[in-house]
């Protein structure tokens, strides 16, 4: 079927034009993403990837389709070297080339045939297959555990940074305060040091 393979080729081209962006705040909206990426090129569409299995507070991911694949590649390369902040900081968003499986509306791969088979319980493969099924479930559990761990690490880092920032902020407030209430000036006069006005 020529049309479907053409369609598929067109879709592949679209995938190449698209950037996968994650680590985005759930507050980010389509227009925000559009605005951010329009700085570097022309965005043709933005599509959020829904996350059903993860908690809603998880970072969001989106597919940002650019005008052409070169733009997409350049942006990805840029974002690797410069952390990009969208709607908040200091956690940067991250970009990667999109993959076919990330698209919800991907067309069927032309020519693919699926053949299924019910195994009989007395089939020697039955046991193995059951084991594989267990392993698959275990792997899924492992993955969700790792995700939990990752979220925990992220939370930890965020907390640390909050602490750091608070401490810094406190310091700045202190300095500001000293400036404001003239303590700096007084001390400078006392120690006979030249101080330029902030």
């Amino acid at each position: 079927m020529g049309s479907s393979s053409e369609e598929y080729a067109a879709f592949r081209e679209k995938v190449r034009r698209t950037i996968y962006v994650d680590n985005m705040s759930p507050l980010v909206t389509e227009s925000v993403v559009k605005a951010s990426f329009n700085q570097f090129g022309n965005v043709s569409s933005v599509q959020f990837i829904p996350t059903y299995l993860e908690p809603k507070t998880m970072a969001r991911a989106a597919l940002v389709e650019m005008e052409d694949s070169k733009q997409a590649r350049d942006i990805i390369a840029d974002m690797e070297t410069h952390p990009l902040m969208i709607l908040g900081m200091p956690r940067p968003v991250r970009a990667r080339p999109a993959e076919i499986e990330m698209f919800d509306d991907r067309p069927r791969k032309p020519g693919r045939r699926i053949q299924c088979r019910w195994l009989e319980p007395k089939d020697p493969d039955f046991e193995v297959a059951q084991k594989i099924k267990q392993v698959v479930n275990r792997h899924a559990a492992e993955a969700s555990f790792l995700l939990e761990q990752q979220l925990a690490h992220e939370a930890k880092l965020a907390n640390q940074q909050v602490e750091t920032l608070k401490a810094n902020y406190k310091k700045f407030r202190l300095i500001d305060g000293l400036n404001e209430d003239g303590a700096v000036k007084r001390l400078a006069e006392f120690y006979k040091m030249p101080v330029s006005d902030p």
């Binding site: 759930p26 908690p55 507070t57 970072a59 908040g88 956690r91 088979r117 195994l119 594989i132 939370a155």
Partner: peptide, 30 residues
């Protein structure tokens, strides 16, 4: 055991969605 191509026995279980825990305004890391 339903065997899909490429030696993949299909696994099925109840779909469990994460509990929606209110609307959170902050985002870890921001």
């Amino acid at each position: 055991c339903l065997m899909l191509p490429n030696r993949r026995p299909l696994v099925g279980c109840h779909g469990v969605l994460p509990r929606v825990s209110g609307r959170q305004t902050s985002f870890t890391g921001h």
